[in-house]
Computed example of a mutant assay.
Amino acid sequence: MVTNTETDGDDAYAVVDPDDLESVEGRPCDLRRLSEATGLENLAINRFCAEPGEQLPLAYHYHETQEEAFIVLSGTLQVETPDREFSVPEGSVFTAKPESPHRAYNPDDADDAVEVIAVGAPPVPDDAVAYDPDDS
């Protein structure tokens, strides 16, 4: 449910329950777009819920101009980068600067789903660039 409080005719505030939003089809895990639902234009916010064996984004990638942060609400997120693997526990944040390749996922052998809020700025459409670690 989205609740807006208007101020001087503008939608200045919003409260959104991600479970009330439609899941984005064609994704490897459950994705709910929060910034779109709240009308935010300068910040991309998404909620991901990945079962064991699912990855969050569509592919290993980097962003040309967007900074990205993954805030782990529950479970443990694994993030692969060209140099190492990160294990990001519940309550922690993983960040990636522009042009920093990464792949976030929940491993096959995980005991539980991982729930993550992803925040990116600026919200640039088509900013994600596929990355193949074998080409590096």
Score class of each variant (00 low, 15 high):
Ser87His: 03
Asp10Ala: 14
Phe48Arg: 00
Ile71Glu: 01
Gly9His: 06
Cys29Trp: 00
Ala44Thr: 06
Ala113Asp: 12
Ala44Leu: 13
Pro57His: 14
Ala118Leu: 06
Val2Leu: 14
Ala59Gly: 04
Asp11Phe: 14
Asp20Ala: 15
Asn4Phe: 09
Asp134Asn: 13
Val2Ala: 15
Pro57Phe: 15
Glu64Lys: 15
Glu25Leu: 12
Val15Ile: 15
Ala50Met: 11
Asp126Ile: 03
Pro89Thr: 04
Glu80Val: 06
Tyr13Gln: 12
Glu41Gln: 13
Glu90Ile: 01
Ile71Gln: 02
Asp109Gln: 09
Ala44Pro: 04
Arg33Ile: 10
Val24Glu: 06
Thr81Phe: 12
Gly91Ile: 05
Cys29Ile: 00
Pro98Asp: 04
Asp30His: 03
Leu56Phe: 09
Arg84Gln: 07
Leu43Tyr: 02
Glu67Ile: 08
Thr65Cys: 10
Val88Gly: 01
Pro52His: 10
Leu34Glu: 00
Ile71Leu: 07
Phe48His: 00
Ser92Arg: 15
Ala130Arg: 07
Asp127Phe: 07
Ala128Pro: 00
Pro82Tyr: 10
Arg33Phe: 14
Pro18Gly: 11
Leu58Tyr: 15
Arg32Leu: 01
Gly39His: 07
Pro101Met: 02
Tyr60Met: 07
Val15Asn: 09
Tyr13Ser: 13
Asp127Trp: 07
Glu41Thr: 11
Asp135Val: 14
Ala104Thr: 07
Glu80Met: 11
Val16His: 08
Gly120Ala: 11
Ala37Met: 09
Cys49Pro: 03
Pro18Arg: 13
Ala69Ser: 07
Pro28Gly: 02
Pro133Tyr: 07
His102Glu: 06
Ala96His: 02
Asp112Lys: 08
Phe70Tyr: 07
Tyr60His: 09
Phe70Ile: 01
Ala44Gly: 13
Thr5Gln: 13
Asp132Arg: 14
Pro122Asp: 02
Tyr62His: 14
Leu58Cys: 10
Asn46Glu: 08
Leu43Gly: 03
Glu64Phe: 11
Ala59Met: 12
Ala121Asp: 02
Glu115Gly: 03
Leu56Asn: 01
Glu68Pro: 00
Tyr60Gln: 04
Ala130Pro: 00
Phe70Glu: 01
Pro98Tyr: 05
Gly120Ser: 08
Ala128Ser: 06
Pro98Thr: 07
Val129His: 10
Asp108Gly: 04
Ser74Cys: 08
Gly120Leu: 05
Gly9Ala: 08
Asp111Tyr: 05
Phe86Gly: 01
Asp10Tyr: 10
Ala118Ser: 09
Pro101His: 02
His61Thr: 06
Ala69Met: 08
Asn42Lys: 12
Arg103Ile: 05
Ala118Lys: 04
Glu90Lys: 11
Ala128Glu: 01
Ala121Leu: 08
Glu80Tyr: 08
Ile117Cys: 06
Ser74Gln: 09
Asn106Arg: 05
Asn46Gln: 10
Pro18Gln: 12
